[in-house]
Amino acid sequence: MNTLEARPPLWRQYYALTKPRVVQLIVFCALIGMALAVPGLPSGAEAAVMLAACLGIWLVAGAAAAFNCLIEQRIDAQMKRTAWRPTARGELSPRQALVFSAILCAGGAVVLLVWVNALTLWLTLATFVGYAIVYTVWLKPTTPQNIVIGGASGAMPPVLGWAAMRGDLGAEAWLMCLIIFLWTPPHFWALALYRVEDYRRSGLPMLPVTHGSEFTRLQVWLYTWILLAATLLPFLIGMSGWIYLVSALVLGLRFCHLGWKLWRRYSDALARQTFWFSIWYLTLLFAALLVDHYVPL
Results as ranks from 00 to 15, higher is better:
187 H>Y: 04
36 L>M: 13
92 L>D: 14
121 L>I: 10
127 T>R: 00
58 W>Q: 03
142 T>P: 01
26 I>E: 01
67 F>Q: 10
15 Y>R: 06
199 Y>P: 05
189 W>S: 12
253 L>W: 14
247 S>L: 02
31 L>W: 11
266 Y>F: 14
138 W>A: 07
171 A>Q: 11
2 N>R: 14
171 A>Y: 01
91 E>S: 06
181 F>C: 03
115 W>P: 06
36 L>D: 08
280 W>I: 00
136 T>D: 07
70 L>R: 11
271 A>D: 06
144 P>G: 09
33 G>S: 07
6 A>K: 15
108 G>I: 08
65 A>E: 11
216 T>N: 12
157 P>S: 06
216 T>R: 12
8 P>K: 02
84 W>I: 15
189 W>K: 10
291 V>T: 04
102 A>F: 05
237 I>A: 05
49 V>G: 01
237 I>C: 06
173 A>D: 11
56 G>L: 09
161 G>K: 04
61 A>M: 06
214 E>V: 13
33 G>D: 05
139 L>E: 07
144 P>W: 13
283 T>A: 10
268 D>N: 13
202 S>P: 11
232 L>D: 02
165 M>W: 05
98 L>Y: 04
66 A>K: 07
36 L>E: 07
230 A>I: 04
215 F>Q: 13
14 Y>W: 15
87 T>Q: 05
73 Q>F: 00
14 Y>P: 04
194 Y>D: 03
42 P>E: 05
294 Y>L: 13
129 V>Q: 05
1 M>R: 12
247 S>R: 05
